[in-house]
Nucleic acid binder design. Structure first.
Lengths: 260, 260
DNA sequence: CGAGCGATTGATCATAATCAAGCGATGTGG
DNA sequence: CCACATCGCTTGATTATGATCAATCGCTCG
């Protein structure tokens, strides 16, 4: 609703050489569930493809061929689509460790049907899909990681439809907070019940299909109920069970490790 | 919202022998875009796996392993999820020619995260995923058909999120009608601007995230605007351009043949 | 200090949900 | 064959939820 796109694709090569640059945090290995050797292999693919853009930049535009897969390294991005110039819907949140395009087996000449853009300053790797496909031949872990990611994204997509269609405003906001809390679980920014929440209320609104003003009021309501505390960049869950109960949150759809 | 599940899996073997039984309409070949030989191959896989169930039956339950792919032959089905016992959201409509499970490369032991159930009397083929995977090795057309279907389903899913989040009631109903009109395009039930619409208003409501009463009123509104005519089982689009304008409908997301 | 942005507040309005009947077609059993 | 029941669609009245409009506040930054 309040999108101002900025400069794009300021190509950026980490100053450091072959060793893992600070731009590629080691925790990605854990996020992706790769063995050490596989992770090194992936890092080599990323090495010369690291890019850095500001907030609200276009990472991939509608209709572009999918000849590259973008691996989010730091910051948050989203898939979004517009009904008209004034109405935006965010259809997916891409967090560190997520690929913008886990559908490697599709014809890369087919353009994507939506826009991927950054919601915060963003660091990502633009890996050539051919190279990634080649790596899949020698790395079963990567195959599995991409499969799980596709599967999880689809499942989240369905759950969002449930929220948008059948949950009320406070339930939607509460549900999203529960989801983010679980998805960010293995990130260092999460310490048990507190996590970084860099989105503006206007962005949140475009995720849950409400106006920013109403999102604000729902956050106040959740605070008043003693379920969360929130400041500009953080959310702290004060009563996890209560929050989940309000949202009718059932985490099985996230298909996290061990919950097959 | 008004779901009463009925008997399931009345296994049903067409009386006819090797030739295409009436239960497997020839038009599926066109729907799937397969060459004649490939289609015959697929028919052989389906031959002994044809099932028939009544309306509102469970085709696949939450948590079931995906060891079979269900190919819809006749009738409509849906994927659905419940927030609680009173709130249902339909997250996908499965029409003839659609597979319930185009994700063959995923681990079949992972259960599905939602329920697939019939919205009308339904005829489908329950094909073993191993056999289908084997067939993919010798049928590039099948590979392509499944890829396109996955891609289209994801894209529709995203567009539904846009509708649920950012379109108002009349736009949502209008948009769904536009989508169904295009998706059913090559079905014989579609004659230019008229098509079969076997869903109850209550089912429609669970697709577009409204109450059945409000769906009723929106249909009346579209009729009053001269955009559609509708009876119990049919919809006729009187003013396609007007309907699409109202819905902000842009068919590129459907990724139909030729619109790569 | 002033500008700008994002969060917040209050007042009002619009949209869609809810509640409660009634209607019309279909189907069944007496 | 008719009475009755059922189911899905339709209508009207009322309520509730969330959108809209219009300021104001507080912080950061130049």
């Amino acid at each position: 609703m309040n999108v101002i796109f900025q400069h794009r694709d300021q190509s950026f090569h980490g100053e450091s050489g072959a060793e893992a640059s600070p731009a590629v945090p080691a925790r990605l290995q854990r996020l992706l569930g790769l063995a050490a050797a596989e992770y090194d292999d992936l890092l080599r693919l990323c090495e010369n493809a690291i890019r850095q853009v500001g907030s609200r930049s276009i990472v991939a535009d509608e209709g572009e061929p999918q000849s590259q897969a973008y691996l989010i390294l730091d910051g948050w991005a989203c898939r979004c689509r517009f009904v008209d110039t004034t109405r935006r819907q965010i259809t997916a949140l891409l967090l560190p460790g997520d690929f913008s395009n886990p559908e490697l087996d599709l014809d890369p000449r087919l353009g994507i049907d939506h826009m991927v853009c950054s919601l915060t300053p963003l660091i990502y790797a633009a890996v050539d899909t051919d190279e990634l496909t080649a790596m899949m031949g020698r790395s079963p872990g990567l195959v599995r990681a991409l499969q799980m990611q596709r599967r999880r994204e689809q499942s989240i997509q369905r759950e969002w439809a449930v929220s948008l269609g059948r949950r009320n405003a406070s339930e939607r906001v509460a549900h999203l907070i529960c989801e983010l809390h679980r998805r960010l679980d293995c990130h260092p920014s999460v310490r048990s019940l507190t996590f970084d929440m860099p989105l503006l209320q206007a962005d949140l609104a475009d995720v849950v299909g409400l106006t920013p003003i109403h999102v604000n009021r729902m956050l106040q309501k959740l605070r008043a109920l003693g379920l969360i505390r929130s400041s500009r960049n953080h959310i702290t869950i004060s009563d996890l069970a209560g929050l989940r109960r309000l949202a009718c949150f059932d985490e099985t759809y996230l298909r996290l490790a061990g919950s097959h």
